[in-house]
């Protein structure tokens, strides 16, 4: 089983392509002489499905990189980005930015705390100054600034 694991990628693409073809058909294909809104999506979705189908059989397993412990780290990093976005919407930029930088500096750069904390705080403040004060980007109300 595990040696066929790499076929998941083309399979997902194939399912995606077929789903898009069905959706496009519902949009009305029209005629070739008077193309409807669904015709073009239908054509490209067919191309997607066709290539995915070919890949299901001919794809080279060597193209697929193994999952390592580094991968787990990346996944954690991604979760932290998701949390950042949620918090950003709720309590503004500064606190989530410091937290995110802290996590990344500890997790990936392996900075000791005595460097990570000041770097994160200074970084967040500088970005706040650049984006909010200098460029005038309306970030959500910031809990630190009493918004």
């Amino acid at each position: 089983m595990s040696k066929h694991l790499f076929r998941i990628a083309p399979l997902v693409l194939l399912l995606f392509g077929v789903a898009a073809m069905l959706q496009a058909r519902d949009l009305s294909l029209g005629e070739l002489s008077a193309p409807g809104p669904g015709l073009w999506p239908f054509i490209v979705a067919s191309l997607l499905s066709l290539t995915a189908l070919v890949l299901l059989f001919i794809d080279d397993p060597a193209d697929y990189e193994p999952w390592t412990r580094g991968t787990v780290g990346i996944a954690l990093g991604l979760v932290s980005l998701g949390v950042f976005i949620v918090l950003f919407e709720q309590i503004g930029f500064l606190v989530p930015a410091v937290l995110m930088l802290l996590i990344w500096l500890r997790l990936f750069a392996r900075e000791p705390w005595r460097w990570a904390v000041p770097l994160a705080v200074i970084g967040a403040v500088v970005f706040h100054l650049v984006f909010v004060e200098a460029l005038g980007v309306p970030f959500p109300d910031d809990i630190v600034l009493g918004g």
Binding site: I85, M100, W104, L107, A109, G123, V137
Partner: peptide, 27 residues
Amino acid sequence: RAGILAAFALLITMAGVFSVNNDVFDM
């Protein structure tokens, strides 16, 4: 170090993409 670079680059990305339409959806 690559880790430091990545941390700051990602924060710029997030703040930067928000600034385009001021929309969290883009993030």
